[in-house]
Nucleic acid binder design. Structure first.
Lengths: 335, 335
DNA sequence: TTCCCCCGTCGAAGCGCTTCGACGTCACCC
DNA sequence: GGGTGACGTCGAAGCGCTTCGACGGGGGAA
């Protein structure tokens, strides 16, 4: 293994000079730096991560806690993880993968052993048991999602309440008077997963505000469940002309089911969704949707963390405004 | 921060004794160990990961390279990652997440900086550019998947060739004479992704051996593509009665398409698949399938790595035999 | 009883890096 | 022209842990 002293000897300088040339924490003459860099390349030097971490008390590793629970849409989680890893690398950091299974102990472990410098936590619940721990940890963290009591934490997410509202406003603007929300699987609500709850809040508030008749329907993530929901909606709400879908896997099956029941989309029924743009675009009937900007959330979460690590204060709450894209699944009522 | 010297003082022993009590690398009297453990608990001591890594030249971290490319089924990747993380924890290791984007440089970086002790690489291609690097690295690695030339490496995967064969044998045994393979998206084959290729090999070999008429059809992962393939198959192979599907996302849409074209499954058409059991079970028509044992592969990959880290020799190739589960999608021809 | 060896523990030396204080040199200002 | 910084570099200390050699004491073998 080639170490910093080898580089120093080869370049004719002291180890500390090599270190400063690398970190830029003290001025080094252009000429010396060139020489050091040449030696590094020639010898193939790589600083030892452990030694660096010990001496600097910075590991340059971020922890990412990914959700495993049922009812969450895996591709979105993955997109998010990839975006975190990619962004972290831009800041010269790596990402340690933690599963929710380890729970609070896992968070405490990686923080207390100084394995990681900071943490990103996904799938936050309204009353998440990890919150007190995160507040007390000596390392910064960022939550993806908003708990009921976010004081003292840093949170970021799509503004799901506004997203729910935007979908309804759109339908209302097109003249629809009876709308329904087809939501995530029931267990997601039972767990009080923050984002799902907020969509319901936004949906309901906007419907009320606009004087629409509305109903909310959790739905399992299977095509069969989608069919059942479609039938139930037509039976119980015959005047229904607008549907908001917040459940990626059933988006397509649900539309199929409606059409098999004799409803054209968007002719008889307008559909809006909250889902990744790629999904909305790729469907047979492209769906008007509020984007789920996983990549942006991941990027900004890492950005926030880096600021905190750098000692800069950051806002406690970052809510990304919903962005609705018109596609082929919405039309004026009676159009 | 509480350190090992604090524990030592509190327990009335030397730091080295605390270390040995923790690692078990030298005999420590029962009584002393008890005392040390009590002090550790009382003070809330956690060894500093960086210091440990520096002194022992073991970071207790594994690298996991996950694929990002199009055409791979994300939930399977995720299952796999979770299984790796969970198993690694059982061996007191953590997992660093690398994306394929970083490529060979990323592998070299985490290995050379001693950030990780060992590596797990997924989505191996037949002629993977990373192979020479992995062979030359001073850290052990395990590949998920088999390249064309696996000598000098450790590989594990489902025996996809045998899986392809088993599916055909099953159909042949039921009397089917004309079969088709609906495979992964074209780009997967273009990249020479090992597992996809091997399924084709097994499928074709078994069909030839049994004197069946056979054809192979790559297929995009969209319902629309599934419909097109279904129509094409019926048009070009009107005598077709057996289909093998190796493409998770289109499994259900494909069956739907066949039924909409007037073919009953399994009445007119028998379907077998290579996919996770959960998927096969959850469909409207439960599908006879060869299981994709992501969890087991992950577990065993970590197990192999641990053996290698321990200095034990391990077999270069581990092929898990296919396990076919009979469900409702297969029936004898003319039954 | 003597010798040897093993058990249990200690002290000290490092692992490879960062960082702090110090120091010489040079330019610049009054 | 002497004082004052800023610049560029060095040496040494130390981050918190593991590990190696050493050593006292007790038990078994001879």
């Amino acid at each position: 293994m080639v170490k910093i002293t080898d580089v120093a000897r080869h370049a004719g300088v002291s180890p500390s000079t090599v270190s400063y040339a690398l970190s830029g924490k003290r001025p080094i003459s252009e000429e010396t730096r060139q020489r050091v860099e040449a030696s590094i390349r020639e010898l193939g030097y790589r600083p030892h991560a452990g030694a660096r971490a010990l001496a600097s008390s910075r590991s340059n590793v971020l922890a990412l806690v990914v959700p495993l629970r049922t009812g969450i849409h895996v591709p979105v989680v993955m997109q998010f993880a990839v975006s975190v890893v990619t962004t972290a690398r831009r800041y010269d950091h790596d990402v340690l993968l933690l599963t929710q299974e380890e729970g609070e102990d896992g968070l405490r472990r990686v923080a207390d052993t100084a394995l990681v410098d900071a943490l990103i936590v996904m799938d936050v619940q309204l009353h998440d048991p990890r919150l007190p721990l995160l507040r007390s940890l000596d390392r910064p963290s960022v939550l993806i999602g908003f708990p009921a009591e976010p004081a003292g934490l840093t949170c970021i997410d799509l503004d799901f309440m506004a997203a729910g509202e935007v979908c309804v406003e759109r339908l209302a603007g097109l003249g629809h008077r009876v709308v329904a929300l087809v939501g995530s699987p029931p267990e997601v609500y039972v767990r009080q997963t923050a984002f799902a709850q907020r969509v319901v809040q936004g949906f309901t508030a906007a419907a009320d505000r606009n004087g629409l008749a509305s109903s909310v329907h959790p739905c399992e993530a299977s095509p069969a469940a989608a069919r059942r929901i479609a039938e139930q909606l037509l039976r119980e709400h015959p005047a229904l002309t607008g549907v908001v879908v917040h459940n990626e896997p059933i988006l397509e099956p649900l539309i199929d089911a409606f059409e098999q029941l004799g409803l054209r989309v968007p002719g008889d029924l307008s559909v809006t969704a909250i889902c990744p743009d790629e999904l909305a675009e790729s469907l047979r009937v492209p769906v008007t949707s509020v984007a789920l900007p996983s990549a942006e959330v991941g990027e900004r979460a890492v950005g926030l963390l880096m600021k905190k690590l750098g000692g800069t204060a950051v806002p406690e709450a970052t809510l990304l405004p919903p962005r609705l894209t018109e596609r082929g699944s919405t039309a004026p009522r009676d159009a």
